[in-house]
Nucleic acid binder design. Structure first.
Lengths: 225, 225
DNA sequence: TACTCTTTGTGTTAATCTGACGCAAAGATA
DNA sequence: TATCTTTGCGTCAGATTAACACAAAGAGTA
């Protein structure tokens, strides 16, 4: 199919804010550019749309081929259209964010090791293009979303403990939440289920293992921290 | 500037969900198509991007030339990219929504009268293209936004009464809200100011006239109804 | 002028929710 | 068995909310 419109259209791309949570750290995946523009600067991974691709297809392609990730939570954020956002010419980018559990993927393998890296969100370098504002928008969206939708389980293992979930929320929202009040609110929301099992191996009392409730009655809730 | 990317890019368009509030009715502006595809069907107003235009420029152009509107509240919603969403060929559309006060614009003037019309949101025809889902998404966003950001004043006159604001919220959210509790919450949010004047002419007690507080300390709040 | 009807502005109160915190059980170590 | 830390469960005062009562304002009417 050919475009039916009269003038030469802008290039279309996606850019990805890939969040990973590991060891009480929320991180973002960045790429070190090897060519101009923004040579040697860190940027978000992205790619131009290929024929007949939908945005999510392009995102999956990037995640798969550049980063070796499969089956990732993905959400469209916003489309960036400033005419000069790419020095090479007019390009429109549809920003997305992804949530991955770094434990499940082999990221720093092979040739990638040098130019792909996780950065703690509190310690980011200045990014190329307009990627700083893409990141800010993604972080804002994630912070907002986690208070009314169970996206946390995308970042954790299938089984997790209450303290782990608690730390995730504190880390993402960058606030401290009373442990006991957090437990009460989360349990009232009914979006996690106690499996009856316990996490073994720790020195002190073994915490209960929970899993996410996949048959939520309501598909949204509101928790105010 | 020419695209620097290799393949022929999809066409790029914007589509607009224009909300208007009048006489206790929330309405959307629709266009009756005169050509195929979707001839004689109602659709959202929209247009293809022209050279160097940003999305908002294109939106303003549509609002100005097709609908005679200036200076309208506008927000980007979501980009729609299904390959077959336009039978004429691959086209990507960035949906926006706009809030206007119908009293301020002369809409049904001249040649437009036949093919442009307001529809109550509860009484919409089936729309062409994928515009039904665009509308649904816009309504959802508006409902969410109005609970944490003062967008209501875009739909009302500069001066308005408490009962008018109350009705606007009930209409948009499609719920009933206790009049007195609504007053308390809105006043606590400090996003409106009592002007001291009163609306004259009504048969009963003359309600106070309020205006929106343009120097809000906090730029967001949360009201739960 | 006094009475009625309706709308609008203000206040009250009981029920609910929230934040802050106490305490005991569980597990490992000494 | 005692100690230390973490985890699970409960309590309670203060804040917030929903439901509702009531008086003031305005216009019409007898």
């Amino acid at each position: 199919m050919k475009p039916f419109h009269s003038y030469q259209n802008p290039s279309l791309a996606v850019d990805l804010v890939v969040f990973g949570y590991s060891k009480q750290n929320l991180s973002v995946l960045l790429l070190n550019r090897k060519e101009a523009p923004f040579k040697d600067r860190w940027v978000l991974p992205g790619a131009f749309l290929q024929m007949e691709e939908r945005f999510k297809d392009t995102c999956s392609r990037v995640l798969k081929t550049k980063l070796g990730m499969d089956d990732v939570y993905l959400e469209q954020l916003y489309s960036f259209d400033e005419p000069d956002r790419d020095p090479r010419g007019r390009a429109i980018s549809v920003a997305h964010y992804a949530l991955v559990n770094p434990a499940r993927i082999a990221i720093a393998a092979g040739s990638m090791a040098n130019d792909v890296s996780w950065f703690n969100i509190n310690d980011l370098p200045a990014l190329g293009f307009d990627h700083d504002s893409m990141f800010q928008q993604a972080l804002q969206r994630l912070r907002s979303k986690i208070t009314y939708f169970p996206v946390g389980f995308e970042l954790l293992d299938d089984l997790f403990t209450m303290p782990e979930l608690h730390e995730l929320y504190e880390c993402i929202l960058d606030i401290t939440i009373d442990r006991r009040n957090f437990r009460r609110k989360i349990l009232e929301s009914e979006y996690i289920i106690n499996t009856g099992k316990k996490r073994e191996g720790s020195q002190n009392r073994h915490p209960d293992l929970y899993k996410f409730n996949k048959k939520l009655k309501k598909n949204s809730f509101q928790i105010n921290f």
